[in-house]
Design a binder for these strands. Sequence first.
DNA 1: CGACGAAACTGATCACGATCAGTTTTGATC
DNA 2: GATCAAAACTGATCGTGATCAGTTTCGTCG
Lengths: 226, 226
Amino acid sequence: MGRKKRARPVASRRAKAGQEEDGGAGEAGAGGSKRERNKREKRARILAAARSLFAEQGFDETTGRQVCERAAVGTGTLFLYVRDKRELLLWVFEQDARRILSRPIPTRGTPVDRWLAFLNPFLALYARDTRLARNYVRELLFRPENPPELMQLNQALRAGLSEIAETAQARGELRKDVGPEEMGSLVAGQYAHLVQAWLGSGRLGARQVRARLRRGLALLVEGLEP
Amino acid sequence: MGRKKRARPVASRRAKAGQEEDGGAGEAGAGGSKRERNKREKRARILAAARSLFAEQGFDETTGRQVCERAAVGTGTLFLYVRDKRELLLWVFEQDARRILSRPIPTRGTPVDRWLAFLNPFLALYARDTRLARNYVRELLFRPENPPELMQLNQALRAGLSEIAETAQARGELRKDVGPEEMGSLVAGQYAHLVQAWLGSGRLGARQVRARLRRGLALLVEGLEP
DNA sequence: CGACGAAACTGATCACGATCAGTTTTGATC
DNA sequence: GATCAAAACTGATCGTGATCAGTTTCGTCG
């Protein structure tokens, strides 16, 4: 029962309310001290090693020791940077997800069009390696103990969907007596469900997911009443 | 890459189209040969041992060896009955899920009422031990390689939701130009999404899930258009 | 610069899930 | 009953993820 929180390399003293230094892919932060630089480099090496190995062999087939070897760090070091192996996968995908979320929110077409345009890059990302994406989505959705930066990805996705709903309400395209967050939540529900049917149980293909998502959102807007 | 399918104890020669022998909780099947009886008993012991240990200690904290000891079987035997430890948890919940699914489908009230009445027992089951339920839902939803009996649970749930939709269409409560399966799928989407928000990320409580489910389904029926 | 404390790092080590060669049980055949 | 093959079982063993006591690196202060 007694938790033993091991002290990990400090998560960057500054970075209070502001950006996380980056925004692109390249982990380009230019923090000062040698310690911080070393840590960033090591972290970057670990993530790069993990990314390539996961792509080459898959997640389950890649051992932590392999990652450490390719990243040129000791076997114990890995777990100073991630709580466990699964978190490593989450960090790898997090880089991609952030890049997607930094794009501008679509403004053209019907609300359904915009929701789809917003969600499409994620579907494309998952399609690149569905096996890996399955592990990612599973861990992302079912781990309360994930670091906040990771949980925030979900939140950001929902925020984007809500924002689209809000704009649509302002334009008179959607009813105004329902909160945009609630609408966003309904959309997120359909999206998550279809992604799960695709990646999780392999019941659907990527093509079907897109089609069903469009159809489902259209029905959501129209309603099921006669 | 090369899979090595180990031959597990045969899954019961007869039992073709019919019942799975049971229906209640007690694994009461009266199959003939001593072999079959032994296997059933052993399987029942393993499941009972796992169930009690999971309840006492949680899933991660329970070791396979503990289960074997309490079930009075050798450590290797466990994996003749389940592919891995996670599957063990799935089988434990499967017993409960089957019992729930064997109930009659609700027929009273609005379609939303009926969908809720149908889904409520599952929410109650999850509420009994949310930590365990999280593991269960996660594995159930994100493992294509699960045995068919387990994957079928999902399907049965969706079938129930569809049946409710179909009845409602016949009564003129829902539009008839949308397939009942599609409606069921939309409902399942909302349900799954809320369960995930509850068990997965701990974002919601059980109470909120019920409320939001009702609200979400109502909106689904009404539509989001002005 | 030298010395010191703290942070970061390391690989030996542990516990666990899973496997497998070897053993026991079962039921069919004579 | 005796004999045999197939099915089921077993615990020793293996590879893995994760941990920890011991070591190195870094920044600071006299």
